[in-house]
Design a protein around this nucleic acid. Structure first.
Length: 577
RNA sequence: GCCGGCGUAGCUCAGGGGUAGAGCAACUGAUUCGUAAUCAGUCGGUCGGAGGUUCAACUCCUCUCGCCGGCUCCA
């Protein structure tokens, strides 16, 4: 973000704070930074604030802007500042100052509003031309849920009114791509109150999309030497005690007691794959051994975090566990990275962020093995020349990981693909292989998903394509629409030809105008509509209309079949919206 | 889980203590039409659920379930 814009937004945040100070005496102030597309300020308010009150605050802010107050900076000795803010009861500010290492702290003042702030700021409040308060939300002080919850007001500001309008318009447009809205409109999936939150029901069209993705995944995994396995949805609690999930993951697990025995609905697939590995002795010659499963898992996510397909309680991962030697680790990681990137590209994803998460405070295993695994991950990223960021201390307790985050329509990021190195489970389950030396050794395990969960991936995919899937994924690939009922027989003949060629085809022989049929097809984002009238029947042709109002004119049905078949086979991601 | 908001017909939404509304969809009929909405009629609701206040609650209050925006947490 441009520094100028950042300053503008930060200054707007200060004006917001001043307005709140005037309107709600007794408010304590926390922090108010500029963020990606605006700013926020966190307050400890004496009252609870609702969305409607934002316009009242905006009004006050406009008054402050009009008053054209100067932003004045002064420096204060740390002790002095602590006294000053303590006197005002500003406990959050005092806490902030105490954490500043310098001797002096910077204070900004506009009118009678004084705030701890590094700056920089605009010269005067009057420089703000275009801002809007967006929403009010709760946020924990310092982002820690053990701390009190503050009231956060989000807003945005731009240099011109036009830019502000454009931004608000963009958000409205993005909302039209929301997978929850499109999922319902296009008949892809639905959630049902009576069935429980976070549980997805794929409708027939969604099931087709999902199945196409699964078929593709199975093929690609087989091509890369993975062995597909299938494991049960429940397992005795003992298995989860051995794995450590019972101790570390219990609040996310579903339990049930049957015949006096306790079972767990699986939250992960790893223990199952380990059982399969351990069913026989393995030589170093067997490694790497890769078990793949489209494994459906259930996790009790906290109610407030559920979000359409992107965050659910039951989902299917394209999960695999690779058992390999330490020497093979880097090579395996590289292959997985390559696999992931290839798949993302084939689905048309260009925007994703890669993170390398390193050793957290609590961890198992030696420093030496952590360093080895972390550098294996990092070297793989470097050699693939993939740009990445480091997420320090964000690794799992059992090992470091690479996460790839996909973006939704509103640019919120969601973790999809991940590669995690694990030293813990092989230890807990006493997983071994016989080495060249004839002795038992412990393999390293890699947990990895390529798309992540099918649910989340489909959600991201719907938003990515705004519901207009590439033809190979489309539930309906071709609609045959007749001009009058006279062409019904010809339409059936055409449909038969397409179906014989495995093209998913539906017909619209209703007594409706062609414009009406085309409109419906357009709203359903169907890629091709074949229009049949007397003209086509006489010429033994079809008129082809491609998604996005493109009239391709008349052609022979064989030519159309060959064209669309190629498009399907190549999984063409050519987008025409 | 926490903070704030919202739940009215299959869908999108209006209404506001005194007989429940529109558009689309569905159904019936007419129309047989050339590239994003043909016309007319009909059907459709325990106003998310449970308590309470009131002569009277869809409307006010309490609880509860679900959804939305955030926070925290994650595929």
């Amino acid at each position: 973000m441009k520094e100028q814009l950042e300053t503008l937004r930060h200054s707007t945040a200060h004006i917001l704070a001043q307005a709140v100070a005037t309107l709600f005496p007794g408010t304590k102030f926390a922090i108010g930074p500029a963020i990606a597309d605006g700013f926020y300020y966190d307050f400890d308010l004496p009252i609870s604030l609702s969305q409607e009150q934002l316009s009242e605050i905006e009004k006050k802010m406009k008054f402050i802007i009009k008053s054209n107050l100067a932003f004045e900076q002064t420096m204060m000795k740390k002790g002095e500042a602590i006294d000053f803010f303590s006197q005002k009861g500003e406990k959050y500010k005092v806490e902030l100052i105490e954490n500043i290492p310098d001797e002096e702290v910077s204070i900004y003042k506009q009118g009678d509003f004084i705030d701890l702030c590094r700056g920089p700021h605009l010269k005067r409040t009057g420089e703000i031309k275009a801002f809007k308060l967006i929403s009010v939300a709760g946020a924990y002080w310092r982002g820690d849920e053990k701390n009190p919850m503050l009231t956060r007001i989000y807003g945005t500001a731009f240099e011109t009114k036009e830019e502000l309008e454009q931004h608000l318009h963009n958000i409205e447009e993005a909302k039209k791509r929301d997978h929850r809205k499109l999922g319902k409109e296009l008949g892809i999936f639905q959630l049902y109150d009576e069935a429980g939150p976070g549980l997805i029901y794929y409708h027939p069209k969604g099931a087709i999309v999902r199945e196409e993705i699964c078929r593709f995944l199975r093929l690609e995994h087989a091509n890369r030497g993975y062995h597909e396995v299938v494991t049960p949805h429940i397992a005795r609690v003992d298995l989860w005690k051995t794995s450590g999930h019972y101790d570390f993951y219990r609040e996310n697990m579903y339990f049930m007691t049957v015949d006096g025995m306790e079972y767990v609905l699986k939250p992960m697939n790893c223990p199952g794959h380990i059982l399969i590995y351990k069913s026989q002795m393995h030589s170093y010659r067997d490694l790497p051994l890769r078990f793949f499963e489209l494994g459906t898992v259930y996790r009790h996510e906290r109610s407030g975090v559920l979000h359409g397909l992107l965050r659910v309680r039951g989902f299917t991962q394209d999960d695999a566990h690779i058992f390999c030697t330490r020497e093979q680790l880097k090579d395996e990681i590289q292959q997985v990275l390559e696999f992931i990137i290839t798949m993302l590209v084939s689905f048309g994803f260009k925007e994703y962020e890669i993170y390398l998460s390193t050793r957290p405070e609590k961890y198992v295993g030696s420093d030496e093995i952590w360093d080895m695994a972390t550098s294996a991950l990092e070297m793989s990223l470097k050699e693939k020349e993939l740009p990445y960021q480091i997420d320090p201390g964000e690794g799992v307790f059992y090992g470091p990981k690479i996460d790839i985050k996909l973006k939704d329509a509103l640019s919120r990021t969601w973790q999809g693909p991940t590669i995690q190195v694990d030293f813990n489970l092989p230890e807990r389950f006493n997983v071994t292989y016989v080495g060249q030396d004839g002795k038992e050794h412990q393999p390293v395990m890699i947990h990895r998903v390529v798309l992540g969960s099918l649910e989340r991936f489909m959600g991201a995919l719907i938003e990515h394509y705004a519901g207009a899937f590439p033809v190979w994924l489309c539930p309906t690939q071709v609609l045959i629409a007749t001009i009058t009922e006279r062409q019904t027989t010809y339409g059936e003949f055409i449909q038969n030809q397409l179906r014989t060629n495995q093209i998913r085809t539906v017909t619209d022989f209703r007594n409706e105008k062609i414009g009406f049929k085309i409109r419906e097809a357009g709203m359903q984002k169907l890629p091709y509509v074949l229009i049949l009238g007397d003209n086509e029947e006489q010429n033994k042709t079809i008129s082809v209309r491609k998604r996005g109002s493109v009239d391709m004119g008349q052609m022979r049905v064989e030519d159309f079949i060959s064209m669309i078949t190629t498009e399907i086979r190549e999984k063409s991601v050519d987008i025409w919206s």
